[in-house]
Nucleic acid binder design. Structure first.
Lengths: 108, 108
DNA sequence: TAATTTTATCGTAAAATTACGATAAACGAT
DNA sequence: ATCGTTTATCGTAATTTTACGATAAAATTA
């Protein structure tokens, strides 16, 4: 598959770069780890554990949600956040595909 | 100044977020794929295949090099770029660690 | 109903990213 | 030495990201 200068980037490249952008901040990685390790999803707990203001954490949660890595479920006045299995599986597949290509290659 | 309290995150979270930032643009993913698939590393070829100006591609190459995912070796007037096995291995490890945590978790 | 708790959104400012033309620097070839 | 080729860097503009206080919105509680 040759790509000329007029072509856009491939859909998989676009999608993986979106996921990467979502992981491109340590706070968002920390959030994913919290959701995975503690299995507790209340927004307030996440805010309490991060060295960031509530508004900032809310923004990070929104980005993770928009890209499909987490879900938010309203639970009374609170919001329960959790990992989005489908999005994570998609990311795993896209990365595995690239990882397989870039692993064990020798050039210079 | 918008202060970044990045020192309050864990080193692994910081490092993985740096790698993610490097992958957070489709052009840089495309570059890694090119280096892996074609095993040809001349900067000019990369410029020719991407829908971006030479200066912009050079900037992307610099970012990939700075984070440790590729290396550049001067070859006469040209530069031969190639994957950096060590950096890629480090990324694989960091991601595998997070992937293991976030996989197969159920919450909401 | 009013007050409280919880979270999202708005407004805004600083910083970083992305992009490109122009130019410099390095090298081989003439 | 000069020329053409190749790549990096500079300068700069537009856009995006990050951050936070203030405030709105939604649900619970008194």
């Amino acid at each position: 598959m040759t790509r000329t200068k007029n072509d856009l980037f491939l859909p998989d490249e676009m999608r993986l770069s979106e996921f990467a952008k979502a992981l491109a901040h340590p706070a968002r990685i920390a959030i994913l780890k919290m959701l995975a390790e503690k299995n507790s999803c209340i927004c307030g707990e996440i805010v309490d554990e991060l060295p960031l203001a509530q508004a900032t954490v809310s923004q990070h949660l929104k980005e993770l949600k928009n890209v499909g890595l987490i879900k938010g479920e309203i639970d009374g006045p609170k919001v329960c956040y959790c990992l989005n299995t489908d999005g994570i599986a998609e990311l795993r597949g896209l990365w595995a595909n690239l990882e397989q290509k870039v692993t064990a290659k020798i050039c210079c």
